[in-house]
Write a protein that binds this DNA or RNA. Structure first.
Length: 503
RNA sequence: GCGCCCGUAGCUCAAUUUGGCAGAGCAGGGGACUCUUAAUCCCAAGGUUGAAGGUUCGAGUCCUUCCGGGCGCACCA
């Protein structure tokens, strides 16, 4: 038997045997009694958390005199013969209901007893505090709003199977409270980021998800095809080049919080689509951005967590200002125990890599090798929030050359808990230099680096009209939320993470 | 992509080590119960052990392949 009678319905979605059959029978019972089990609406003025806030000080056994009306999902039923207790859960809380023959009359009480865990109901009744001190609504009338046909997961252990949790996130949200809490941390984080930027007169813009040339990052894109135009399109790997076009157009302060798509491996810290904040700010450089990022994150973290110091995965993490600032060269030098600098010969760098068991690929120049040493030997060990300054030009094709050292760029990353949280630089606004960087990237592509940049001639044309000096920053929102929710996996902070198809 | 681990009732888990009757709690069904809250008590039911093949007198357990997932590595943010 299938729920909807669709013979093509895959087995994985088919019903759960007698439990569903039983509920289908109840569905018909409600209709026979003249109750439509899928209601149109249910006007109500109260919520569980508001009731708790308002009547917390009621004494045990005391009546409030207030008649509440609320709606939600029935999550537990404790039957006691001619009276029963139930738990109603709505968007932000849980409230106990008490129904009895006395409060409902025998006919309505009998129907109340027919409710199943998982049903959506609306109730009206007087708020009181039970003798045991539980705030309760004494139900004088109720309505079935939507009949649930499948059994919910276990009330005490919840839903633990991680595959089911991700595939059927609606169940995870229903029975595992921390899922909703994590989501609300994410929502609040994004709200606070927007609030911070909006308050400083940044304008939020939306740039293309579908791009003819995927630029702004080094990554493999997803490809798609536009039928009417007959041309290939790519899901964006970054909004960077479009946001900078906005700066060329005179917007001065722009940002975007939205999805990027990268066709790469999936792991506890990678989802094929993930959320980035990028902002661009005319007339500032990367040192200004470093100060700004400190201020922004300190404000956002405090707003979300109530403190700048908290534990992540059992270890204390503190965003108190100022963060440590150190150059990438210094960190690498410390890690290998000898000075690494812009003029360190490539042969010496290769020897160092071999000494520290960092494998290299041919075609990598000194800048890439140093960055690789950093990522393998330094980054995983940077736990406290650290601003790592001055990345090599070779790995930074969109960043301005460093004012003091042409081997480097004016770029920094924020590293915390051993991973990159943000990446920022003084933007490369010199169109001649940018053209050369693109050409370098094109040579890398020819050598087989699929992730190297493709030349974006319109972007070069835009720069040739003139882009003001600009600082730009990108931050992985999911990664930040992982820290704020103490989540080991990125899948805990993305509602519907990507999984292989179920069928 | 490679390595390790996992998949048993709707859910949470036993039984796997050493092959020998597939079990419990919750949910669901019947019954008792008007202040419980993981309600309690009594009764009954619930299974293609992810799939297919193999070894064996006998497979949830051992072997092979496949499917799905987790973790680690690689790539990356």
């Amino acid at each position: 038997m299938t729920l909807v009678g669709d013979e093509k319905e895959p087995a994985a979605f088919q019903d759960e045997g007698d439990l569903v059959k039983r509920r289908l029978e109840k569905l018909e019972d409600w209709r026979r009694r003249g109750v439509e089990p899928y209601a149109l609406n249910y006007p109500h003025g109260d919520s569980a958390s508001a009731i708790h806030d308002r009547f917390a000080s009621l004494a045990d056994g005391e009546e409030s005199g207030y008649t509440a009306t609320l709606a939600g999902r029935l999550m537990a039923l404790r039957r006691h013969g001619k009276a029963c207790f139930a738990d109603l859960e709505d968007r932000d809380g849980r409230l106990q209901l008490m129904a009895s023959v006395d409060s409902l009359g025998s006919e309505q009480y009998e129907m109340f007893q027919e409710l199943d865990i998982g049903d959506w109901i609306g109730v009206t009744g007087m708020v009181f505090k039970s003798r045991r001190g539980e705030l309760t609504v004494r139900v004088v009338s109720f309505a079935l709003l939507s009949k649930s046909l499948r059994p919910l997961p276990e009330k005490w252990h919840g839903l633990k199977d991680v595959e089911l949790r991700y595939r059927q996130r609606y169940l995870d949200l229903t029975v595992n409270p921390e899922v909703k809490r994590n989501l609300m941390v994410r929502v609040k984080t994004i709200q606070e980021l927007r609030r911070f930027l909006d308050a400083r007169e940044f304008v939020e813009v939306e740039t293309p998800m579908l791009q003819p040339i995927p630029g702004g990052a080094t990554a493999r894109p997803f490809t798609t095809f536009h039928q009417a135009l007959g041309e290939n399109l790519y899901l964006r790997i970054a909004p960077e080049l479009y946001l900078k076009r906005c700066i060329v157009g005179g917007l001065e302060k722009v940002y975007e919080i939205n999805r990027n798509f990268r066709n790469e491996g999936i792991s506890y810290k990678h989802n094929p689509e993930f959320t980035m904040l990028e902002f661009y700010w005319a007339y500032v450089d990367y040192l200004d951005l470093a100060d700004f990022l400190e201020e922004m994150l300190a404000e956002v973290v405090r707003a979300v967590k109530g403190t700048l110091a908290f534990d992540y995965q059992g270890k204390p993490l503190d965003f108190a200002l100022p963060w440590r600032r150190v150059t990438l060269m210094q960190t690498v030098s410390e890690a290998v125990g000898r000075t690494v600098a812009s003029d360190t010969p490539q042969g010496e760098l290769r020897a160092l890599a071999e000494e520290h068991e960092v494998s290299l690929e041919k075609g990598w120049g000194p800048g890439k090798i140093i960055t690789e040493l950093f990522e393998k030997l330094v980054e995983p060990n940077l736990w406290k929030p650290t601003l790592v300054m001055d990345y090599p030009r070779e790995v930074s094709p969109l960043a301005r050359a460093h004012r003091d050292d042409p081997f480097l760029t004016e770029r920094f990353e924020l590293i915390a808990a051993g991973r990159e949280i943000a990446n920022a630089f003084s933007e490369l606004i010199d169109p001649i230099d940018q053209r050369e960087r693109f050409q370098e990237q094109a040579r890398q592509r020819e050598k087989g680096d699929e992730e190297a940049h493709v030349v974006d001639y319109d972007y070069l044309r835009a720069l040739e009209y003139g882009m003001p000096p600009t600082g730009g920053l990108g931050m992985g929102v999911d990664r930040l939320v992982m820290l704020l929710t103490d989540s080991h996996s990125i899948r805990e902070v993305i509602l519907f993470p990507h999984l292989r198809s179920e069928i």
